[in-house]
């Protein structure tokens, strides 16, 4: 992990999307008046004929994307996660998931790390909403490199995909040589004292905790779930068998998110206690991203506390 090089995964998405557009004529992009924030503006500049600003109409945007997919396009429809999955939920369900349309739904600005905009914009339920929709694949990359991989990988899947990207710049974790595989988590270390299962912008917090604990001779492993659905069952079971304490952490509600997905696997395959870190039955609030995370206990220190 390179703590000195921080990049927001939404920026990585924008860059990868532009490159994908260079390579694949079928890729079209729709945005709902947020292209400078979702970073689809790089694509818009490079491929203006294949970029469609749908204005502030998220429901219509998803429906239009579905129609374009039925004509052979590969539409990426982007907005803040709260709108692309929340506001347009029935459109995702009836016009994308059920007909298994080749639409890539993009939600940027998930979670508490939205910061100052506060609860209305801090989407804490996007994983819960999308994982229950049949046919959807979900990517929740943790850094620049994995985010770029996810964009390319999504374009290869012939069906609905949800990709979530973060507003906040976070450390670059991987290097260019890293291999990713759909549905396969990436395990850091082989410690036996505990496992921290993480996704998205919480992976760097887990890695930070791992580093601090190493100095205290406590050896844990961290798992990055860049793919949320399908979830990597084998890796969950392996870690549960090989390590002592289990923790999940997500910048998301603990209801229906990564922690619940892991506990679903554990309860049926290898029952074991799991401490779920995330937001509990409450909304977010305004503040600087790191301070909001601290207020909700999503820090390396809290991970360490829970492991001890």
């Amino acid at each position: 992990m390179n703590k000195d090089l921080k990049i927001a995964t939404r920026a990585s998405f924008g860059e990868a999307l532009k490159e994908l557009g260079d390579e694949n004529e079928k890729v079209v992009v729709l945005d709902a008046d947020l292209s400078s924030a979702t970073k689809t503006n790089s694509f818009a500049k490079a491929h203006p004929d294949r970029f469609f600003d749908m204005g502030i109409q998220e429901s219509n945007m998803i429906g239009v994307a579905s129609g374009m997919a039925s004509c052979g396009k590969i539409p990426f429809a982007a907005s803040f996660a709260v709108f692309s999955t929340g506001r347009a939920y029935d459109q995702l369900r009836a016009s994308v998931a059920y007909p298994n349309q080749n639409v890539k739904v993009v939600g940027t600005h998930y979670g508490l790390t939205v910061g100052e905009d506060g609860a209305t914009h801090q989407m804490l339920e996007d994983i819960s909403l999308t994982r229950v929709l049949p046919n959807f694949t979900i990517f929740s990359p943790s850094d620049d490199i994995s985010a770029k991989w996810a964009v390319k990988e999504a374009s290869k899947i012939n069906g609905p995909v949800y990709l979530r990207f973060c507003r906040l710049a976070t450390p670059v974790i991987y290097d260019e040589t890293q291999k990713f595989e759909l549905g396969k988590g990436i395990c850091f270390g082989d410690g036996k004292d505990g496992t921290v299962f993480a996704t998205g912008d919480m992976v760097c917090k887990a890695l930070e905790a791992k580093e601090i604990l190493e100095k205290e001779n406590i050896h844990i492993r961290v798992v990055d779930f860049h793919t949320i659905k399908p979830i990597d069952k084998e890796l969950i079971i392996k870690c549960a068998k090989e390590t002592d304490k289990l923790i999940s952490i997500e910048d998301h509600s603990v209801y229906g998110g990564l922690g619940d997905m892991i506990s679903d696997v554990l309860i049926s395959e290898f029952p074991k206690k799991l401490i779920k870190m995330g937001v509990r039955d409450e909304f977010g609030k305004s503040g600087k991203a790191e301070e909001v995370l601290k207020a909700y206990g999503l820090t390396a220190e809290e991970i360490i506390e829970n492991l001890k």
Partner: peptide, 25 residues
Amino acid sequence: VDMTTGSLGQGLSAACGMALSGKLD
């Protein structure tokens, strides 16, 4: 059947997407 429908109000959006694709191509 060119489009799955049933949840009212969604078909016209899909039709717009089809028409937009036609223009693009």
